[in-house]
């Protein structure tokens, strides 16, 4: 029986009076692609951000590969280097070119040599379909291209887990597909992925599991087909009817 690569136990997160997470129990096995959906304010992003400790849980534990992130002895930077994260607003470094965005952490964190990190970066740019943009600054790239550079930047660290926080929400419609194609491709390589997204086509094509969250709790945890054809909870039905209407 393989161990879960991500495990949370009774995870709570409060922001002042707001309870963003109210006891999340989640296990993700290596190679699984998990899609998290839910209404705005349901705690999806907070859960994702607790997994790489960008948010410190108020209560409970997160285990990555068996390592407790709440343990004071845990080297959080080393754990984070194994977890790639892709943000809604890309968060590329605007003062660096696309190539430099991808080589920086390889240099600072992985201590790779010049030639090696540049080769990795160029290979990744080719993989996400924009090899010709290596020397371009983020400000001159379209949103879809920026997000693909951001994915390449995260992949350059050879992460074991990739987290996606609404990666297509800030994109114009015609650019969503180019980003989803890269994510789909990544899912097929066996990468463990946790994606907060409302792209139902992607969920159907790539996800093993879909989780519906509401008010800081996991309401349903099932397969995409099961969720669409046979949602068990009223809240799930209501939410699906809203997002699938159009």
């Amino acid at each position: 029986m393989p161990e879960p690569i991500i495990k949370t136990i009774d995870l709570h997160k409060h922001f002042g009076q707001v309870q963003a997470l109210r006891g999340i129990e989640l296990e993700v096995m290596p190679g699984q692609v998990v899609v998290i959906i839910g209404p705005s304010g349901s705690g999806k992003s907070t859960l994702l951000r607790c997994i790489n400790h960008l948010e410190k849980p108020t209560h409970g534990h997160v285990y990555i590969d068996g390592v407790d992130l709440e343990d004071k002895k845990t080297k959080i930077n080393a754990v984070r280097a194994e977890i790639g994260m892709v943000f809604q607003l890309f968060n590329l470094f605007p003062h660096l070119t696309a190539l430099q965005n991808i080589t920086l952490a390889q240099q600072v964190v992985r201590k790779r040599r010049d030639a090696e990190r540049e080769q990795i970066a160029r290979d990744l740019l080719a993989r996400v379909g924009i090899p010709e943009k290596a020397d371009v600054y983020p400000g001159q790239l379209s949103g879809g291209q920026q997000q693909r550079v951001a994915i390449a930047r995260a992949l350059a660290m050879n992460p074991k887990i990739m987290l996606f926080d609404e990666p297509t929400s800030a994109l114009d419609p015609e650019m969503i597909k180019e980003v989803l194609d890269v994510m789909l491709d990544l899912a097929q390589t066996g990468m463990t992925m946790v994606c907060v997204t409302h792209e139902m086509g992607f969920a159907r094509a790539a996800a093993n599991r879909i989780i519906f969250m509401d008010e800081g709790l996991i309401i349903e945890d099932t397969t995409p087909t099961e969720l669409y054809t046979n949602p068990r909870h009223e809240r799930t039905k209501l939410f699906l009817s809203k997002i699938l209407q159009h």
Binding site: N77, F87, N91, L104, A105, V108, M157
Partner: peptide, 23 residues
């Protein structure tokens, strides 16, 4: 500087000071 810059740098495994210095 937008806080997303620090978060992106930290999520890549950089320490606080590395993120300050390079990003």
């Amino acid at each position: 500087i937008h806080k997303g810059q620090m978060e992106a740098a930290r999520s890549l495994g950089m320490s606080y000071f590395e993120a300050m210095r390079y990003v």
